[in-house]
Design a protein around this nucleic acid. Sequence first.
DNA 1: CCACACACGC
DNA 2: GACGTACGTGTGTGGG
Length: 876
Amino acid sequence: MKKLVLIDGNNVVYRAFFALPLLSNSQGMYTNAVYGFTTMLLKAIEEEKPTHLLVAFDAGKTTFRHNTFKEYKGGRQKTPPELSQQLPFVYQLLDAMGIKRYDLDNYEADDIVGTLSKRAKDAGFSVSIITGDKDYLQLVEDHVNVSLIKKGISDTVVYDTEKVRERYGIDPEGVIDLKGLMGDASDNIPGVPGVGEKTAIKLLKQFGTVERVYEQLDEVSGKKLKESLETNHDQALMSKQIATIDRDSPVLITLDDCAYKNKVTPELTELFHELGFQSLLEKMDLPEEEKSPTENPSIEVMVVTHFSEDQLVSPSALIVEMLDENYHYGDILGFAVANKSGTYFIQTVNGLNDSLFCSWLADRSKEKIVHNGKQAEVALNWRGLKLNGVIFDVGLASYLIDPAEAGQDLASVAKKRGITDVETDDAFYGKGAKRVIPEGDGQAGHLGHKAAALFALKPILAGELKTNQQEQLLSDLEMPLSRVLARMEFTGVQTSGETLKAMGRELDATLEVIEKDIYELAGVSFNINSPKQLGEILFEKLMLPAIKKTKTGYSTAADVLEKLRGRHEIIDKILDFRQLGKLKSTYVEGLLKVINPKTGKVHTCYNQTLTQTGRLSSTDPNLQNIPIRLEEGRKIRKAFLPSEPGWQIFSADYSQIELRVLAHIADDAHLKQAFIDGLDIHTKTAMDVFGVEKNGVTALMRRHAKAVNFGIIYGISDYGLSQNLGITRKEAGRFIEKYLESYPGVRHYMEDIVKKAKKSGFVTTLLNRRRYLPEITSRNFNLRSFAERTAMNTPIQGSAADVIKKAMVIMDRRLAEEHLKSRMLLQVHDELIFEVPEEEIERMKVVVPEVMEHAITLKVPLKVECAYGPTWYDAK
DNA sequence: CCACACACGC
DNA sequence: GACGTACGTGTGTGGG
């Protein structure tokens, strides 16, 4: 006989939460409700041995019952965030176990259960319902029983028709009449005042139903009772109606959909590990994890020396193997392809010489699945090859699904999804200095498994993206951007080694003088670059007051030294030495090391899957932190030139993009107006915070206001602001308070986003980029506060990143459409740098701001400022 | 080899 | 009252 088990998910999770202490896993995430629910679920499966299983959930706040009675479930305590945060894991758990879950707009879990139990009974199933809610007893009938959870989570009492009669003295159908008369405080159902369980049962035993009670009201004994029944006639009927479970609700799934196979998946093991459910893991008799991936017989990797047409079918997963050294210069260690025809490995030389393979790589119509395709594309470009037809990038996808887990090895991404037969590169090649490329054909197996995993991962990740509504973010933003970045990196930026060397010589001369001065002032020579030695000199030998300490000793950081200025001549010298030393080592010497001797250019690598906010990062060299604030440093920019004679460096930057994004997201009328009116935002903030007219804003006020603005977009704390401005915490607190009074929409946003993050466990940006903040419900003040500030900051910074990324994709197309020769070279978070032929300058002055300002339409205008000159330094 | 302190950018 | 601005990369020091 078929057996259907129906579980009221909300009820069981809720009971588990309150029955168990607030357990948490190693990451501080609460797990007690998930744990309790899991225990219940496993017990039910073991005892009931269901062939079909479904967990029903309540859909939302309002149901059809609210149409009849708008106070339904009124006055209920809000679900604690510690509980609601666990719900997603309950869903994940069910999905991993292959158990159907279902909710239905306007209906509650009990209606779903009622409907399916009826259908199942009619189809000849036996049905067990698991819940802690007595209301369900109304569903009991032949072949349908209810397991009512008693105190705690482990005890249940099974109610069949007989048991209901025994306990209440009425038939199961009578439960709704019971409710109609006695009401239900927990659902805010009124019933008839003065009628409790005893009286209600007595009445029902005598009359049968609520309606009958009223038909024969005269026969009711007791004057008071009669009166109360009489005056509350409508209320009693309404209460009965509300308490009635709808057994014909529009449930769209079928019984077949609920078919259940007891199977332990790798996803489940992974999830249990994540949740820290060690005891359950042991209990479940899990299969041993695959230890030696190459032993997996299901993937046979064929080593080929050239490809045939029928081996390169669409879609195919493609691995272009390189180790983590710089992909502009690194070797390709082989290729692997996986598709429905099989899994193939080809050595680099053979692949590069196989014209069929090379034209397949370049063919737009041949669909490819890759992992961080930018690397492959650039590496192929350096070999004169093209890569087209990439339809899915697993690296980018996993980054969007959870930026905290991305940027990882393909093996980790796969393992998380239950594909365990891929070795990490670290494991296969060894890590650090021990890294070697194994002899023989072991590599074919490794690459083959990677390619096969890639092929298998695509539908899984696509599904996850769909759930998160991030498909467009991948297909219309990050994947096209990957192509744009590849081109920018490959194009590179012309860099004058001579200019750098000349600057280096000057720096050397100056540094030598300063160094000598410092030794003289200190009375001894020492390593100025060693904070330890420097600390000893300053705070022990020269007896300067130590303001701040670090874990390891005295702090000699710039802000500390600033405060010691004027106390000793040596301080200024040290600050100068540090500043110039940094220029010399990082910028002059550092950049010289990475200029390509053949092209005279630097070719950065953008990491598109690293930052938690959605920004890019840049390495080898980092071209996003070239000095600009201090003139000495800024001169470094003179070394960056156009790559063609007579061209110009053209720079375009967003003005106040983050504050504009804030005005948009917070939808703050006052802040929006300020931008619409084109005001100087820091002056405007000063006017609001200090309550003065424009003419009354002093330079100091503006500086303070600017710091407040800066802090606001980073999720401010009074302490942070006080440090920044050198004022007391109280004063800083007053500034913030004043600010939030002036911009109530911003205050509301800040409070709201934290609440939302607590509820859902993540925050999102304009284009639905996500960041999870598990620590936002931590009891550790430190961790929680940090997560709260992150909740405020990430949508702002991340949305700004969305805007400029979108602008880059559009800009790239626009340059092509207009047949402009100008090239996009760099992105520095809120600015784009181009090299532009003289004759295109005027056009670019129009096109670039147009594209950037309209990349995404906000409720405030975006403003872009352009500049150009013969070097990056001059584009100011 | 790694953690740390420091300094550069947005 | 705790802690303590966001996000990054690179360099040099110094301990294991």
